[in-house]
Design a protein around this nucleic acid. Structure first.
Lengths: 333, 333
DNA sequence: GCCGCACATGAAAAGGCTTTCATGAAAAGT
DNA sequence: ACTTTTCATGAAAGCCTTTTCATGTGCGGC
C-alpha cells in the first residue's frame, strides 16, 4: 500500500504538500495540485488511518451503543444514523449493552478506548449521573431516547408523556372510561413518562385515576401476557388496555385470545412503539409510533454539530403519533 | 491521557518494558511486572489505539457489512458476531450496503480503508468474482449467507436447498400435491437454491414439476402479495404455497385474506427465515428457520481463525429446520 | 530599480507505540 | 575461578501523517 512519501516522490513535491492537497488545509498552486492528484490516482493512495489518527488525534469514527442489537428498534435507529454519517465519511463502531448495567458501562468504555470522535448512546440501565459525566467529558456524546435535564441539549428523545396521553386519549375518544395500563418496569424513565401521560389524559377527561387499573411488568411478551391476565382478573370491568410497548401488547393479545376474549369487541388495546410486528398482528395493533429513523438522523446531526461540522438546526424532542389500526373499538358512552 | 512514557517513568523502567508487560510478548521479571502494572493502574493508562495501529499495522477491529441494518435478519446475526468478538477485545465496524450494488462495494472499500483486521461480508448484489478476489486479497474475509465454490471455506451458509426441500416435504406430508412456489429474485442464489429444493422434493415424491406453479417476485410483502394473487388466478387448483421468505408470506396472507381465502383451511402456507414476525401472524406462520445467531458466532470464529487466533473447529454449512405453526393444514390424499 | 510582502513549498518535529538490536548481569558449564 | 550462555532490560529506529516554522521566489509599491 502506497504511502504519502511515495506519492510525494512521484509528484516531485514534499509529503507536506501532498497532505495539503488532500486535506485542503492550505492553498496549493494549481499546477502542483494536479500533479499530486495524478500521483495519488496512479498509486491508488489511501491515507493510513492510524498515522492520521496519531497526528490529528481524531479517528473519523463514532461509536454507537444500543441496548440490544437484536431489538427491533435498533435497526431503524441505526439506519438513520448511518444515513447521515456515511456521507460525512464517518464510520460506525458498534457495541451493544444487552440491557445490562455492567455491560452498558463496558460498552461505552470499550468505545472510548478506541478513541472514537464521538458517541451516540442508547442506554437503559445506566444512571443519569454517569451519563451526565459522560456528556460533560472530553468526547462529544449524544444520548438517545432519554432526557436528562442537566444535559438536555445532548439528548434526542420522544415525548413519552405525550405518547401516553395520545394512547389514552384515543381510548377515551372511543368512549372508554375504564382503561387499564400495563407499564414497563418503572425503573425506566420511558415507562414512567408513559404512565404519567396515561394519568394526565384520564384526569384531563375527568376520569379518576385508579391504581388498581395499573400494573407494572417487564417489557416483553410474557410480561404483557401475565400482566393483562392479572389485571382483568382483578378488574374485569375494564374495557380497554394500554400497554407500554408492542411486545407486551402482542403477548397480551395472545393470552386474551386463549381466554376467548375478543379484540377489539370485548376489549380494546393500544400498544407503543409501532414496532414492525404491530402491523402483522391480527387484528393489527393500534399503537404509538416514534419516528426512529428521523431520530437516528437527528442524533447523528447533533453529534456532527458537536464535532465541529456545520451544525444543522436540530429538534431534540420528537412527537410520537398515534397509528390507528384495528384493536380499538368504540364503546357506548 | 497518560502515555506509555509516563507509565515507564513512574515504574522506573523503559517504555519497551511497559509494552512487553502489556502485550506479553517477552517475559519480564515478575518484580518489574508488578511495578509496571501498578503504574498502569495508578495512571489509568490505556494504550493509544492509533499509535498501536501504526506500529503493528493492525486495528483490533473488524468490519461487518450487511445488506440492510434494518432487516430483521441483521440483528440476530450481528448479535452472534458480537458475542464472540467482544470478549476477544475486537470491536465491530459497521456498514450497510442497502442491497445496492454500488453501495455494497463502497461499504467494503470504506471498511478496508479503515484498515480493519478482517471483514465479515453479507452481500446480496456483488458478484462472485468480486468476492473471490476479496477473499483472496490480503485482508481476512468471511462471507456470510452465500456459498461460493472456489472459496467455500470462507463461507458460512445455510443449506437453502435443504430448506426448500423441508418446506415442500412438509406440505407433501400433509397430503398436498398441487403446491405453488413464489421465489425471490432468481438473481439471488438463495432464491435459486430454495427453488431447487422445492423442485427436488416434488420430484422425490413423484409429483411432476409444473412451471406454471412457480412465479418469481421480490423479497418483500408487496412482492409476496402480488405473486400469490397472480399464481392463484393462473392456477386456482393450488392447495398450498411455499414462499421464499416470511415477508412475502406475510404479504400473501394479507392479500389472500382480503380475497376471503382462509388460511390454512383453503390454502396452506410455508414461509422461510422464521423472522420475528412469523410468530405473530395470525395464524402463526409455519416456516423454515436459519440459526442466525449461531451463524454469526461461527462467522466470527472463522474470522478469528483467519486472524491467527486459535481457531475452533467450525461448521460452514448450517441446516435450517422447519418450525411448525398454524398455516399448514392436512389435505385428503 | 530596490525593499518588503505575500505566497507556495520544503524541512523537520511530533504523535505514542512496537520491536530489533545491543548490553550488562546473572546463571550455567568446565 | 573463568568462560559461555541465558535472561532481563534499555536505547533507538520505525510506522505515516500532520503541522509549525523557515525559506525562497516573484511581485507590487515606492
Amino acid at each position: 500500500m502506497a504511502t504519502i512519501k511515495e506519492v510525494s516522490l512521484l509528484a516531485r513535491v514534499s509529503p507536506a504538500t501532498v497532505s495539503r492537497v488532500l486535506n485542503g488545509t492550505t492553498p496549493v498552486a494549481s499546477a502542483t495540485r494536479v500533479r499530486v492528484l495524478e500521483a495519488v490516482e496512479a498509486l491508488q493512495y489511501k491515507p493510513n488511518a492510524f498515522a492520521r489518527g496519531l497526528a490529528t488525534n481524531r479517528s473519523g469514527g463514532i461509536g454507537v451503543t444500543v441496548n440490544a442489537v437484536s431489538s427491533p428498534f435498533f435497526g431503524a435507529f441505526v439506519a438513520g444514523v448511518e444515513q447521515v454519517l456515511r456521507p460525512a465519511g464517518i464510520h460506525l463502531m458498534l457495541s451493544s449493552g444487552f440491557a445490562d448495567l455492567a455491560n452498558e458501562r463496558e460498552s461505552i468504555e470499550f468505545l472510548l478506548e478506541r478513541r472514537c470522535d464521538g458517541l451516540i448512546v442508547q442506554a437503559e440501565r445506566l444512571d443519569d449521573g454517569f451519563l451526565v459525566d459522560l456528556v460533560r467529558g472530553p468526547t462529544p456524546v449524544v444520548i438517545f431516547g432519554r432526557r436528562i435535564a442537566e444535559i438536555a441539549d445532548a439528548c434526542v428523545v420522544t415525548d413519552n408523556e405525550l405518547g401516553g396521553r395520545l394512547a389514552t386519549a384515543h381510548l377515551l375518544d372511543h368512549g372508554h372510561r375504564r382503561i387499564g395500563h400495563v407499564t414497563g418496569p418503572l425503573a425506566f424513565p420511558d415507562a414512567r413518562a408513559r404512565l404519567h401521560g396515561y394519568r394526565r389524559a384520564l384526569e384531563g377527561a375527568g376520569v379518576a385515576y385508579d391504581e388498581r387499573y395499573v400494573v407494572e411488568s417487564t417489557f416483553d411478551e410474557e410480561g404483557g401476557a401475565q400482566a393483562a391476565v392479572r389485571l382483568l382478573e382483578r378488574a374485569p370491568e375494564l374495557t380497554a388496555l394500554f400497554l407500554s410497548n408492542d411486545q407486551m401488547a402482542a403477548g397480551a393479545m395472545r393470552a386474551l385470545r386463549e381466554r376467548a376474549i375478543e379484540i377489539p369487541t370485548d376489549l380494546s388495546i393500544v400498544g407503543y412503539d409501532d414496532v414492525f410486528l404491530a402491523r402483522y398482528l391480527t387484528p393489527a395493533l393500534t399503537t404509538i409510533r416514534q419516528p426512529l429513523v428521523d431520530m437516528g438522523r437527528t442524533a447523528a446531526h447533533l453529534l456532527l454539530g458537536r464535532l465541529g461540522h456545520i451544525g444543522e438546526e436540530v429538534v431534540h424532542r420528537f412527537d410520537p403519533e398515534l397509528v390507528e389500526r384495528q384493536t380499538v373499538a368504540r364503546v357506548a358512552a
